[in-house]
Design a protein around this nucleic acid. Structure first.
Lengths: 217, 217
DNA sequence: TAGATTGTTAATCGATTAACAATC
DNA sequence: TAGATTGTTAATCGATTAACAATC
């Protein structure tokens, strides 16, 4: 494989967490070896796709045998930086922000929300999951955190995003449903729950297949 | 030219909500005509992609002029079924479930959470956003709702999903981070917030470089 | 070795983009 | 008509899948 920074396809990267999760489960079940066939079926992909995905990062398996679970888990964790904890800043302490602050999935994977900001005076000073909510106007610059979660109303989204980016945040998880219009140097993942429901609504009567009958309700 | 029964690419469908949102904003700004170039740039896609996406559903524009905003908005709403309200069942009334029950984005697009279920005795009987939380053991069959949101802990996810599907739910928005293992007749969208953060963590140091010492085992 | 499964290549599939003829 | 922009075709790009040689 090439010496230079090979360009890893984004779909490959997006599947790594899924492989990681499956490996954790296998390890918890004390399984020591897993084949690409088995892991792929757990993750809901084709075995060849799993192997192809891994091939971007090196060699991981033992031919004729499979993959050592513990080893593969460690290496995927290292690739995804999940072998270390990550401090995260959350902006927005409303219903959604509170839920995120308390979300067990984050801490289980090593993400720690260590700073929470809001703008509402009645929230500032209160605590969420052990963290005191501060005034977003007091956001220090530089902040010293690379990961940010945005859970403010859509109207404030762009301004807060800019504030975070100017404070040195490099990656944003955006729940606001707004287009942030960020520079290319910042990575953004948009989670738009309304869009997701709309996509489901489309499929309710959507075109499943040319000749297929839709299931009766 | 195509009827709705044509096989529409999933990426096209996933972009429709974004077009819809942009059109709403244009309409609120009283703009009557929009070109593919302008709308595409608002939505963050190429103009040719926008036109191609639309072409799966018919003709929408006026050559030499552009698209009438109000008309295009109506037609996209109709395609996505956003021209009608949708009743939704929510299972899981914890932190995340509560946030979802109160999420303003849903009602703004016509999604109404009309039933909420949980399993915890201390939650049953309380109300969320005007809806009484009921015991998930009392889930009626059939339930008479097509859209479901799953916000329970991962351990209970599969069982609850099965329950909902057996009660007639046809589409599920899954926040549990579990693989549901649903039949093909049911549409599922997975929102895995932990995966999203992990993808961001990966990008913090950019795509893995093979120049960096990564000795092959 | 014989059997099994990886890592990789090559073929297939599908989506994006550019280009342009149609046409308002 | 002249100018503009759509709808569509054709070219490009990239990702998925199947197949198999390498090899444990």
């Amino acid at each position: 494989m090439s010496e230079r920074r090979d360009k890893i396809p984004e779909p490959t990267i997006a599947r790594l967490p899924s492989y990681f999760r499956c490996l954790v489960e296998l390890q918890e079940a004390d399984q020591e070896i897993v084949s690409s066939e088995e892991l792929a079926s757990l993750a809901g992909v084709k075995a060849s796709q799993f192997r192809k995905d891994l091939s971007h990062f090196g060699e991981f398996g033992i031919q004729g045998l499979g993959y050592p679970v513990a080893d593969l888990l460690d290496r995927i964790a290292a690739i995804m930086q999940l072998d270390q904890d990550h401090d995260v800043v959350l902006v927005g302490a409303g219903n959604l922000g509170s839920a995120l602050a308390n979300f067990p999935g984050f801490s289980r994977w090593g993400f720690r929300i260590v700073r929470i900001y809001d703008q509402a005076p009645d929230k500032i000073g209160r605590r969420l999951h052990g963290v005191t909510i501060r005034d977003v106007a007091d956001l220090p610059c530089p902040l010293g955190l690379k990961l940010g979660i945005l859970a403010v109303p859509p109207s404030g989204a762009r301004a807060v995003a800019k504030l975070l980016i100017d404070s040195g945040v490099e990656a944003l998880l955006n729940f606001t449903g707004s287009n942030l219009g960020h520079p290319d140097s910042v990575v953004v993942r948009n989670v738009d729950m309304t869009h997701e429901l709309a996509i489901l609504a489309y499929h309710l009567t959507g075109p499943l297949s040319l000749d297929e009958e839709r299931p009766a309700r």
